[in-house]
Design a protein around this nucleic acid. Structure first.
Lengths: 240, 240, 240, 240
DNA sequence: TATGAATGAGTGTTCATTCAT
DNA sequence: TATGAATGAACACTCATTCAT
């Protein structure tokens, strides 16, 4: 179980670790500057989109000289890649907490709550994330840019997690169906959560409820086959 | 009824009609050239992404001189806008056929089939569409480019259509809930259809079925309330 | 004989023909602009050295916008490569005239005159050539720049020519010695001619004479072994 | 005699003495650091060319911080200038040993051996020297960099030495011819020695022999006039 | 003092748009 | 009118040099 969960988690973090930095900053000043630059990049992306996140725009936003950016990053894409990595790290932490060790004893609704709620909060908190990394666009070109590649890896690792989870919930479910269900849930979740974050405050709660209801409705027939489980003596039926 | 459908349809087409063309070509010669350019733009976008759709790339793909492009379009964005318009036109035709005059007598499943199937086919046929226009990213900046604006308008008009449809299916449904349901369906549909088009052939059918099942499950409680009333006693057909 | 001469001649011209141009200019205007740019590059190099031949400096010198340079050349190095090609073409013409079809009947002094004189004139006329292409620096790095590569190829093809010539003069001369002699003559010639072109006018003639005397002295023992040739009936000893 | 030799020797060393060092390091510690930096610069130049010898590359190669470089040198050119000075010092030592006190009693061949051999060895040992300082390119611009200026001075001082030497060998030789001969010998020597150092091992000895033979042949008529006097009648010496 | 971060002018390159032919 | 050249503003990236720690 731990292993199953560990693999995809690692997949997130190992993304592009190699050349993400031109040189790892050795003075605390540099560490701070790197964070500043990533924050600046996120701000620019959030406000003006990824195409506006030029080296200069990022530098200006970070109140830094353009050259400083290249002290730590080999090129502009590396900044975005590092930003993605930072998101990936936080994502991993969220996943680690969200995906329960033993999901068998948990009602589907609660399970979904546990996963969806922190993701919703994450989307709310990171406009740049939803703007760049919560997109559907797929690979069609060899000149893939780092952010696009990372976006795919982030998504895939989330699908992996769901895949494993669904498998442990219903081992009878054929692998193909399981993976497809995972893909759909990830896709729908990403899509609705991104939209929800931009919705007026009044719609946020209902949108989240609707998403959950949709996922429950979709997953129920796939995962709850073994409804009458023997080890539950007392009633306490989580779901009627 | 016709009106209800016409309004959002018009919304799609009237988008940017004013300056989209520098000079509306009346001769079929020019018309053909425009179509060629739009085809070329779509091809380039499909293969290399929107950033690669430079004026020169489009012209080369269309086997035309760069200058000719500006004979018909005031600027590069106008090309993309025109492409979006062309998609919008086809979309409108699809909607016109898909959204039935009298949806009352139609089972929800059939209704969804009617709308989703042609859209799925449309996504399959237009890789450039899903690559650029089937994205979530929303407006956040004044310097927004035409394609982004149009993408939003396309989406909104689809939501409008669904909104109207849902309203005619269940007039009791509060406007706010209705619109939200429409938004969710549009968002989910777009997301899954775009992904489906890039999926391996074997997955295409199941993905479509899953999407439909998901939508039915989500809409059933919202739209089928009135149907159940007369035959309430016996059957309880809601979910076999 | 014709073949032997043709091979190295071709070697000069085939240098980098492929991507020297981003796009071959199709209007006569463009042709002129290309020539202008090459002239400008040559001027800048002649006056300020190759490091000063920046894209901007060349453009300014050619009274052109910086961007125009990239209309015809894929990058800055390609300009220098094209310049080298132009030199190579002229060189080839010079060689074609200088290297006689049948050198057997010609005194060594005359042979050398025929080769050295036009080269001296060429060096005089092309300061940029001697500044960049008449240098010794050899390969030591993979990131070879086009001009350096071309410089080597130009030199090598000249050595090839001499090699062939020496071989036809004295077939008994071992290939290794022949090639070495060719290398030395080319190297010495290049070195002295470049220096001569920068010398005060009064020194130009004596420097040329000295170079020739040096070459004659060096080559005499290698090439004139078969001194008593039967087909020369009358005395008319060109060189005692 | 000592004076004659001393003047050009001094000329080599006095070059740029003033500002070459920002602060002349008195502690052996600093001295060592300076030597390390110069070694590093030479290495980088030898391996990747002078353009690659950036302040950072040199510092990294010297396992030093970039800032330390500026502790000892006012700017990057000063590093190269100091390197040139170091070469000049070694050169001067070589010259001091090579240029005999009384060359009158020495055969021309031995004289040339004495000068050429250590220079050949020096070229072999110092790839950076031949890469940067053994070039023909002459001054033509005020913005000339220190290395170029120094390269010229090194060469000139060698010419001076030869000039003096030739004068002492044949006082009758007109100053103009003498200086020209010195120039030619220096130029040819530099050119061939640089090439020889990059030649395959098997060619090194023959190339050196050829160079010597060439120089002997060239200088014989100019310097050995007084020796030939007694046997003038018969032989018809090649060029009196 | 030694280290490595900060700075910004400069260079190569792209590309939308205009213009001459 | 169609073609492709001309233009210049923008952007990515480098590197000598200065500065804070």
């Amino acid at each position: 179980m731990t292993d199953e969960a560990a693999t995809p988690a690692a997949a997130i973090t190992d993304v592009e670790t190699d050349d993400a930095f031109r040189r790892r900053p050795r003075q605390s000043r540099g560490q701070k500057r790197v964070e500043l630059l990533l924050d600046a990049a996120a701000d620019v992306i959030a406000e003006h989109g990824i195409d506006a996140a030029t080296a200069e725009a990022i530098a200006i936003r970070a109140r830094t000289a353009k050259g400083s950016l290249y002290q730590f990053f080999p090129n502009r894409d590396a900044v975005l890649a590092a930003l993605a990595l930072r998101y990936a790290d936080e994502m991993r932490a969220i996943h680690e907490r969200a995906f329960p060790m033993d999901p068998h004893g948990m009602a589907l609704e609660r399970l979904i709550d546990r996963i969806v709620n922190p993701l919703a909060e994450f989307h709310d908190r990171n406009p740049a994330f939803r703007r760049v990394f919560a997109t559907i666009e797929g690979p069609a070109d060899d000149t893939r840019s780092a952010p696009v590649r990372l976006r795919g890896q982030l998504f895939d690792s989330f699908v992996d997690r769901l895949d494993v989870l669904f498998g442990s919930r219903n081992p009878k479910l054929p692998a193909r169906d399981r993976r497809r269900a995972a893909l759909i849930c990830a896709s729908v979740g990403q899509s609705i959560l991104a939209r929800r974050s931009r919705a007026p405050a009044a719609d946020k709660k209902p949108l989240l409820d609707d998403l959950k209801r949709m996922l429950v409705g979709f997953l129920q027939p796939l995962l709850n086959v073994q409804q009458a489980r023997p080890r539950r003596t007392a009633t306490k039926r989580v779901k009627p």
